[in-house]
């Protein structure tokens, strides 16, 4: 249940950043295979995740967080308890 909550939350952020309906963001979403998730979209997503989850994403993690799955695993390990959206 916690995992589903996190995934939905990330999808909400991605939907806002990439200007897509949430239901068009698949669980397999990756950089460069989702509309608007390019270089600029990537930094916008990282900054939006920082705002939403109250954390700082390092340069090294910017390089690792290239899929919804990777972001979810990273946030599950590092994010403070996610506040309600």
């Amino acid at each position: 249940m916690v995992w589903q909550y996190m995934r939905d939350d990330i999808k909400q952020v991605m939907a806002q950043v990439f200007r897509l309906p949430v239901d068009q963001i698949p669980d397999t979403a990756k950089i460069n295979n989702l509309l608007n998730w390019d270089s600029l979209g990537h930094i916008q997503l990282m900054l939006a995740l920082e705002d939403r989850f109250g954390l700082r994403i390092s340069a090294e993690n910017i390089l690792k967080l290239q899929s919804l799955e990777a972001i979810e695993q990273f946030l599950a390990q590092t994010a403070p308890a996610a506040p309600p959206a």
Binding site: I31, D38, S39, H42, I43, M46, E60, I62, L65, Q66
Partner: peptide, 16 residues
């Protein structure tokens, strides 16, 4: 290497 985030990661590392 475009669309890997490497460019923005370089800039973020400089900021750090």
């Amino acid at each position: 290497t475009q669309a890997t985030g490497a460019g923005v990661a370089l800039l973020r590392k400089a900021q750090e």
